[in-house]
């Protein structure tokens, strides 16, 4: 029993349908608990006041915006190396979710930045990097949409994802070089000193868990839709082929 068995679309669909209710429920519980805890049962920050609480949306969505791209990269590599259709379709399914996560991060950042920095937008390295990431997502989705043959589209978008990753990382450092910025350091890191205080930390972890589950549920759901679309296509192709054969025999 290897993991690759689930590369078969039918088996994948069966498993994903069994897992999905749990993911949706988990996401709902985590987000419910985390957001209520974070919004109503944590103290206001002594400098930032209650505006700090947008962190419970901002940080998880920003994390998922990057992780979604990373997932697409891994899925693209699996497609290039092992040619499993499910992998390519999962990458396709993840992109719009990633776009939404990026937008949430950008908008909550703007709402947070306005009272803090006195501006909706600043060309700060982090903000700029996310804007560039957003452009990469747009290009990736547009390329999927523009190509009719699904396997060609999968190949081309997979290569674009690889090249895009290199350039996204490059842009990140180029932007750092270009402007040092005013964004605070990472909210979460392994060396404890930089971290936000514990009272904010635990509800934040719960929210991040909720976003991860929500992301997984959405991607599985969308992948299932893509698989069904391909199934319809295969059925229609089979139908036209048998029709032409019957016509030829007659």
């Amino acid at each position: 029993m290897s993991l690759w068995e689930y590369a078969n679309p039918v088996k994948f669909l069966r498993l994903s349908e069994r897992v999905q209710p749990w993911l949706w429920a988990g996401a709902a519980i985590c987000l419910g608990v985390g957001l209520v805890w974070g919004f109503f049962f944590t103290p206001d920050d002594f400098r930032q006041g209650s505006t700090v609480k947008i962190i419970y949306l901002h940080v998880p969505s920003a994390l998922m915006a990057i992780n979604a791209w990373f997932m697409m990269l891994v899925a693209s590599l699996i497609w290039i190396v092992r040619r499993h259709h499910v992998s390519a379709l999962a990458a396709k399914a993840a992109a719009p979710v990633g776009i939404v996560m990026t937008l949430i991060a950008l908008f909550t950042g703007a709402i947070w930045g306005q009272p803090m920095w006195g501006t909706w937008w600043a060309w700060d390295p982090r903000l700029t990097s996310f804007l560039i990431l957003f452009l990469f997502y747009l290009g990736y989705v547009a390329l999927w949409e523009a190509i009719e043959d699904p396997d060609t589209a999968a190949d081309l978008t997979a290569i674009l994802c690889l090249v895009g990753t290199v350039f996204a990382v490059l842009s990140r450092y180029a932007v750092l070089f270009w402007n040092q910025g005013l964004h605070q350091g990472a909210s979460l890191s392994l060396d404890k000193e930089e971290n936000v205080a514990d009272v904010f930390y635990f509800p934040l972890l719960v929210c991040i868990g909720g976003f991860v589950l929500l992301f997984l549920a959405l991607v599985l759901y969308r992948t299932g839709t893509e698989i069904r679309l391909r199934r319809t296509r295969a059925l229609m192709a089979r139908e036209t082929r048998s029709a032409t054969l019957r016509a030829e025999e007659a």
Binding site: P9, I227, R230, E248
Partner: peptide
């Protein structure tokens, strides 16, 4: 050779 091709699975057949 067309009849033989009709017997062959298309690349999308895995989805059925």
């Amino acid at each position: 050779f067309r009849a033989a091709a009709a017997q062959m699975a298309s690349a999308d057949e895995a989805f059925l």
